[in-house]
Amino acid sequence: EEGPDWMDAQARARMEGALSSLGWRCDTITGWLSLLSRIGGPADPDFVDWLMIDRFEGREYDIGICRHWLDPTIPVTEVVTKPAHGVMITSATLKGGGGWDTARARSGAVHLEHAAQEFEVASPFDYPNQAKVIIVTDVKRGDMAGLAGAYGQLIEASGGGTLGLFTAIRRLRTVYARIADRMAQSGLPIYAQHVDPIDTGTLVDIFRDDPKASLLGTDALRDGVDVPGQSLRLVVMESVPWPRPDILHRARKLAGGGTTYDDRIIRARLAQAFGRIIRRADDHGHFVILSSAFPSRLLSAFPEGTPVERMPLEQALAEIRTSKTDLTQSGLPTETSFMHDNQQ
């Protein structure tokens, strides 16, 4: 703190660097001591602990002890929310298709000393006339050829402007490899996250700029894409976005009410995916799910009044083609607008 006269700036920088490095190592060792002391001891009800082995091509390359909060909103509330003078949490899908209890649980408001104030504004969009949900009933689960064929036909029926969402990178890559040549022959550009060597933001910009382009991706595109106008008029999901049944999820599901906990997660994901379609007052589009195993209890994830129909693929293709023709004849703009609308 009070260096001698002979200590110049370089010497002080070296010493401060060494102190910082030692402090970081002390924190690491403290964490390891705390972790090791829990082995064989009583379980902490606020945490989930498990052993993990990472393997690649039959070789084990890492072994670890993992610990996660059972309820991750507890540390967020303690570190961020409670010390603040005031916090406003807002989202078009905060309820996730449920009620205020779901919103309070997801935001961590249940851990506050005082009850949170709640305020809700009705959506300005006319969902019954601007959007439609189609559940395709004849694409078999696990049939990659059939899944790829459905994606290719849907993109062609819509003339591009399609956002394809996947729950697994492997299936995304397989579908892309099967339909890339077909799309090129049809004159419909197609891009894919985890395939094209371009960052996600740039892929979205390219997709937004070309109404004939289509984009395939995973949850990053499901939750954070804003493409108003005719560049996005069809969203296709390969299946219901069920949570991955790992150790952490099973523990949280057990503590959160079983199937009810899963349903809250799925409704939130569906609401986010559906929200990609209607971004401003003159947007129109279809939301297609290629899974016949879609429980009716999850339909509350979509805005009230949104039409939902179950139909075979051929009927869905005919309806999308008809809708495309109607939009063209109505004189709606076909060029992409770059104005970001914050109403959603």
Rank of each mutant, 00 (worst) to 15 (best):
A251C: 07
P72D: 07
G86M: 13
R280A: 10
G160E: 04
K140D: 14
L234K: 00
D8E: 04
H85A: 15
T162E: 05
A177D: 15
A255W: 03
E2I: 11
V76I: 15
F119A: 09
Q315P: 03
T174G: 08
D226F: 07
G31V: 05
P307L: 09
Q117T: 14
V225Y: 01
L147R: 06
I65H: 12
T200H: 07
I265K: 10
A192P: 02
S291Y: 00
L19I: 11
I135V: 15
D223Q: 13
P45V: 02
R222V: 11
A180T: 08
L270C: 07
S21N: 14
P241A: 03
E16S: 01
T73A: 04
D199P: 07
D71C: 05
A157T: 00
I155Q: 01
L147H: 05
D196G: 05
V48N: 02
A145M: 12
F287I: 01
I320R: 03
Q343K: 11
Y176C: 01
Q272V: 13
R297M: 06
Q343L: 10
P197G: 05
A316F: 02
V87Y: 03
L232A: 03
R59W: 13
L35G: 06
Y151A: 04
T325Y: 08
I179R: 07
D138V: 08
A11Y: 07
I63K: 11
W32D: 11
S21D: 15
F119Y: 11
R264G: 10
T28R: 14
H194Y: 11
V195S: 06
S239W: 03
D326P: 02
D263H: 15
D181E: 15
I155R: 01
W100N: 09
G146P: 02
T202L: 12
P333D: 15
F125I: 03
I53E: 12
G31P: 01
T162K: 02
T218Q: 05
L317A: 04
T259F: 08
R222C: 09
L221P: 04
K82C: 09
T336K: 05
T260A: 15
E120N: 06
V139L: 00
I53V: 14
H68Q: 13
I190E: 00
G58F: 04
R276V: 02
Q315R: 15
L232F: 01
C26W: 13
G58Y: 00
L203A: 05
H194R: 13
P45C: 05
I29D: 09
G17S: 15
L313T: 06
V110H: 10
L172F: 03
T137E: 03
W24E: 14
T90I: 06
V110Q: 11
G229V: 06
